[in-house]
Design a protein around this nucleic acid. Structure first.
Length: 585
RNA sequence: CGGGUAGUAGCGCAGGGGCUAGCGCACUUGGUUCGGGACCAAGGGGUCGGAGGUUCAAAUCCUCUCUGCCCGACCA
């Protein structure tokens, strides 16, 4: 590509709002342009990089037996009503009516669509297993897009769907994906880790998220450096201690001005872990069949020194969503904020008790009387509720596996894999006939990678003061040819020669100063730069500079095609050496 | 959805009741320069986010509204 004819141009200054380096450079180098909140165009450079990523994805998906297809973005709402997600997913899904007033949705994922197709294709166990994937546009009306391509509303996603006759089959294809995803990310040059995750709106039991660890990430990952335990904080467990002792009789004491655990512990001169903290949320429960909604107060109890993890709480309560409760809602159930506990409370509420509280004795809890608390409350004797793990794992807490201190880190979710089981096949009657003639729901899995987000993470990982420095496997071009001599004949012939040999060349044939050309080359970040200048040309040589390291070598003009091929191979070899082969333990 | 902040040329910004709205970069023309964001000269480009209002006069004041960004809620 001749730069004189390139659609995009570089920006000298960062557009307002580009607050991470990767985003700033993608914008300035002309890879992407914004059109609205969370809505971006991929300009030719960004599109090329994306195509490289997609090429890697296709190779790896094909390698595990996937077949590529493409499903429609617009789905009739009927299939989403079959699974109930038409009702349980809120405003995040785009909805509209067609000209005949039929409900339509913009598919934000394709479990329904693929299951609808599959039920027409699968009849016998002999047809299984199957695996299909697509690279396709998703629209998800995220309430808060941010950080460029990291969190957008419209994006391209690899999504694959597996169909098996039983859990063993699912387990195998799930493991295949686990391994293939590490290969994909590492072939793109992106370091990643897999963590145990919440399956969220997808349903199902087992799921893993792939995380690019970075301070710009929004997810919090809990990891153990000693034994390798990793999990998203939303589900991360940690080693809890229980205060087990002989139950003592409950006793009401005056605790004026002690609305927080901190004040209470100070007033009574006790450790916060000797208290039970009461957190109030309101859960929304949606009927999958008809979309009817119901709200209910959720009372969450954790030990005073722990925090409530809302995802865990939401799962334990089986709520579709939860929000903090208002004071009136708490008081309506006979509890007094600041001095609250389920003891003596009445009305329609759900009580979820963290095991740290359930298994500890004689904790201090609210008396539902302003200015008073109870000493020596005990779960089971003084109140009841559902026991679950709803406490949040934090930096420094103990590893649930080996007991070593846990570490918290920020991460960007670049992919995830779910064992769906029969959630969709049962709801949509996607069954196969087994040897005995019985109809059995197909066992499914679904798997996804955000392509644009992956590019954004790469831009974040590979940059310096000058701009991007993408790995050769994903860079839009392999070579950036910069000509500084007036006579274009030599540069033109190098360009033609390299191009004819299948090398991807971005040729800066513009009438710009050397400084501008170098600065733009650094910004765009093509891995290799050929500089054609009078200085070395006098000796019949050109310079080849490696963007990532700045290392420069001069080669004879006559050898340049072969030398460049060798340099590209070297760059590619660096990537190949870093390919991660990892099996699910 | 709550809190904050901003919207003036393609990009970055200044101006904050009064004549023709400015600066840097980018752009056009001519000339000089030519290996790390050159210089000189002459130019082109604006519904000051939108609507309504106050006023002799509004980019500027008031009301409403739209949009972007940041924090939170939320999210795969």
């Amino acid at each position: 590509m001749r730069m004189s004819r390139m659609f995009s141009r570089t920006l000298r200054e960062a557009p307002n709002g580009a607050d991470t380096k990767g985003y700033e450079y993608l914008l300035r180098a002309g890879y992407i342009r914004q059109m609205g909140a969370g809505i971006f165009s991929l300009l030719p450079l960004g599109f090329k990089a994306t195509q490289k990523i997609e090429g890697i994805i296709r190779e790896e998906m094909n390698a595990i037996g996937g077949e590529e297809l493409q499903m429609p973005v617009v789905n009739p709402a009927d299939i989403w009503k079959e699974t109930g997600r038409y009702y349980s997913i809120d405003k995040e899904m785009g909805r509209f009516s067609d000209r005949n007033n039929r409900d339509m949705v913009l598919a934000m994922t394709h479990e329904e669509a693929v299951t609808d197709i599959a039920r027409g294709e699968i009849d016998s166990y002999k047809r299984l297993p199957l695996l299909v994937y697509q690279l396709q546009t998703k629209w998800r009306d995220d309430p808060r897009p941010r950080a460029g391509l990291i969190r957008v509303r419209e994006f391209t996603m690899l999504d694959s769907y597996s169909f098996d006759r039983d859990a063993e089959g699912l387990d195998k294809i799930y493991r295949d994906h686990y391994r293939a995803y590490f290969r994909i990310f590492s072939r793109c040059g992106l370091p990643s880790i897999a963590v145990g995750a919440d399956s969220g709106m997808m349903g199902g039991k087992i799921s893993h998220e792939y995380m690019y660890l970075s301070p710009i990430g929004e997810d919090t990952i809990i990891l153990c450096d000693k034994c390798g335990y990793t999990a998203n904080r939303q589900i991360a467990k940690f080693g809890k201690e229980y205060i087990e002792e002989e139950m003592k009789p409950i006793e009401k004491v005056s605790t004026p001005e002690s609305k927080t655990i901190e004040d209470l512990a100070a007033y009574l001169n006790i450790d916060a872990k000797k208290t039970a903290k009461c957190v109030f949320m309101v859960g929304t429960f949606i009927n999958d069949k008809n979309g009817e909604e119901e709200e209910k107060l959720i009372v969450a109890l954790v030990r005073g020194d722990y925090e409530v993890e809302e995802s865990k709480l939401s799962n334990a309560a089986r709520a579709n969503s939860i929000r903090p409760a208002h004071e009136e809602e708490i008081m309506a159930c006979g509890m007094v904020p600041g001095y609250a506990s389920p003891i003596g409370a009445k009305g329609n509420f759900i009580c979820i008790v963290d095991d740290s509280v359930a298994k500890s004795n004689n904790l201090v809890a609210g008396a539902n009387d302003a200015g008073f608390h109870y000493l020596n409350t005990n779960f089971g004797r003084d109140y009841t509720g559902t026991v679950a793990d709803i406490a949040s794992a934090r930096d420094g807490m103990r590893c649930p596996v080996c007991g070593a201190p846990l570490r918290a880190s920020k991460g960007v979710e670049i992919g995830n894999i779910f064992q769906l089981g029969t959630r969709y096949s049962s709801a949509m009657n996607c069954t196969y006939q087994d040897e005995s003639g019985k109809q059995i729901p197909v066992v499914m899995g679904s798997y996804g990678i955000g392509v644009g987000r992956l590019l954004a993470c790469l831009a974040e990982e590979y940059n310096d003061e000058g701009g991007l420095k993408l790995p050769v496997s994903v860079a839009p071009y392999q070579v950036h040819l910069v000509s500084l001599v007036k006579d274009t004949a030599i540069a033109d012939s190098i360009y033609d020669e390299l191009t004819s040999k299948g090398i991807e060349v971005l040729y800066d044939d513009r009438k710009e100063s050397a400084g501008v050309k170098f600065a733009d080359a650094d910004l765009i970040g093509i891995p290799l730069r050929i500089t054609l200048g009078n200085r070395s040309l006098k000796e019949g040589k050109v310079e080849v500079r490696i963007r990532a390291t700045g290392e420069t070598t001069t080669y004879l003009l006559s050898d340049i095609a072969e030398e460049i091929k060798a340099e590209i191979a070297k760059e590619q070899a660096r990537i190949d050496e870093g390919i991660v082969e990892k099996e699910l333990q």
